[in-house]
Structure formats: C-alpha cells, structure tokens
C-alpha cells in the first residue's frame, strides 16, 4: 500500500536533485562564459546529459560532491583518525599512557650531555698520556 507512495517520493526527489544539478551547472556556465550562444549550447548539452544520458551517475556524483562540501569528510576524519587514538582507549586496555610532557626527551638529552662530557674527559686524558709519552 505504501510502496507507490515511497517510490513516487523517491522518483520526485530524483527529479528535484536533477533540478539542483541543473541550477549549479547553469550558474557555473553563466559565471564563466556569460550570456551568449556558447553558454546556451553548453546548458542544453548538460541538460541532455543530466536528464537523459546519465541521470544516475549525475545524481550520485552531485550527492557525493554535496556531502563533501557539507563537511562529511571531517566527520570521517574525526571518527577514523582522531577519536581512534584517544588515550582513554589505551587505558582501558591496560597500557601506559604516552608521555606527552617530554620528560623522556629531557632524560635522553641529559644522558647525551653526560656522554658528551665523559667523551671530552676521555679525550683529555688520552692527550695527557700522549704528551707524557713524548
């Protein structure tokens, strides 16, 4: 009973989307070429493509373009990349939190300074020994 209503609704929504596609295309052509014979020819060609030649592909491409322009890609980035690496998830799995304060880097720098100092001392001692040997 509801099937004709639902199918009719979707058919009409397809037509509405095609109208929106034509509005976008006409606006694009008029902005770039102005009002002229070439614009009219291009608009007629695009009308044929959108409504008759490949309506399904046109609707799909326009929907993807509209969703991307509306910011759906940022939602996917939020979901797959940003929230996927939150520290709360790692705490739940019993792992240690990553060090974000840089204390491990400071420790490494101190160790490097100590090693540098020790190497200088060793070089000085070697030079002293060589001088004594002469």
């Amino acid at each position: 009973m509801l099937e004709p209503i639902i199918l009719g609704f979707f058919e009409e929504m397809y037509f509405v989307i095609q109208v929106f596609i034509m509005i976008s295309i006409i606006s694009f052509i008029l902005n770039h070429l102005g009002k002229g014979l070439l614009s009219i020819i291009l608009i007629i060609v695009m009308f044929y493509v959108v409504f008759i030649l490949i309506p399904a592909i046109s609707i799909g491409a326009f929907m993807i373009y509209t969703l991307l322009m509306a910011g759906v890609s940022t939602l996917f980035v939020d979901f797959f990349f940003i929230t996927a690496g939150q520290p709360g998830q790692q705490q739940q799995q019993g792992e240690e939190r990553p060090d974000v304060l840089g204390t491990d880097v400071k420790e490494r720098q101190k160790q490097l300074q100590h090693a540098h100092h020790a190497s200088h001392q060793a070089i000085g001692m070697l030079q002293g020994l060589l001088k004594r040997g002469r």
């Binding site: 009409e12 037509f15 034509m22 008029l30």
Partner: peptide
C-alpha cells in the same frame, strides 16, 4: 545561483511545487 531572471522563477516554481 542564477540571479534575477526567468530561469530563477522557473526553477523556484518547480522546487516549491515539489518541496
């Protein structure tokens, strides 16, 4: 999108009827 013109009235009418 289209500015003032006959096309604006045409497309607006179609969309208002359906939507």
């Amino acid at each position: 999108y289209l500015g003032d013109g006959i096309l604006t009235y045409l497309f607006t009418g179609i969309l208002i009827y359906f939507l």
